[in-house]
């Protein structure tokens, strides 16, 4: 069964080149044996799956890919990279697609993941360490998903597993310097609102 109507193949190779450069991979090595998809723990939730994602990169199908939920579904387990006969680190290709999507301000299909990553890095940038209470609380507020995991969250707090007072790095200035020296996180790039700590 063919999906999605016809794909018009563009001679423009920019997506593949950008993804290859960011991921330090050669997507064109893929010969579509599907071993990655066969071993991917989340392929069944994906629309395309790892192999098709690679083909869509080869075909420069930027619009389909960058707005796809698939690129945010990758759990980063690296089973694909370990088993790929052409040594393509597909998890890194997924990362590169996320990065291109964020850099280009493409509205993500999975806003929950994007918000999670932005919050996480915001906390690390300002506190130096991750703080679950802040992360979970803010993420639930931001995604409007207040009730999910309320039970286990409460149990964790009761067991002292979610410290309400965050550990804070002493060298916070150094941490902020490190962030600004790295290419700045997408939260700033895309101009999206930054949540308060």
């Amino acid at each position: 069964m063919l999906i999605d109507g016809r794909v018009d193949v563009k001679p423009d190779n920019s997506l593949m080149h950008r993804v290859n450069a960011r991921a330090e991979q050669q997507v064109e090595l893929c010969y579509h044996c599907h071993k990655c998809t066969a071993g991917c723990p989340v392929a069944q939730e994906m629309r395309f799956g790892p192999d098709q994602v690679l083909l869509l990169v080869q075909l420069n199908q930027q619009d389909r890919l960058l707005s796809s939920r698939d690129i945010w579904l990758c759990a980063g387990c690296e089973a694909c990279a370990t088993r790929c006969p052409n040594e393509i680190d597909i998890a890194r290709v997924m990362d590169a697609l996320r990065q291109v999507a964020l850099a280009e301000g493409v509205r993500p299909a999975d806003t929950s993941s994007v918000k999670f990553h932005r919050l996480f890095l915001f906390l690390v940038e300002h506190l130096g360490r991750m703080n679950e209470a802040g992360l979970l609380g803010a993420h639930k507020l931001w995604t409007g998903n207040l009730l999910a995991d309320l039970g286990s969250g409460a149990v964790m707090v009761a067991k002292g597993k979610i410290p309400l007072v965050p550990h804070v790095l002493r060298d916070r200035a150094g941490m902020r310097r490190l962030f600004s020296r790295s290419l700045h996180p997408a939260a700033a790039d895309s101009g999206a609102e930054e949540p308060g700590p």
Partner: peptide
């Protein structure tokens, strides 16, 4: 010590 950045960092920026 500081946080390693976990999957959030590599999803967003390789250098970070």
């Amino acid at each position: 010590w500081n946080c390693c950045g976990a999957s959030s960092a590599h999803s967003v920026d390789r250098d970070l």
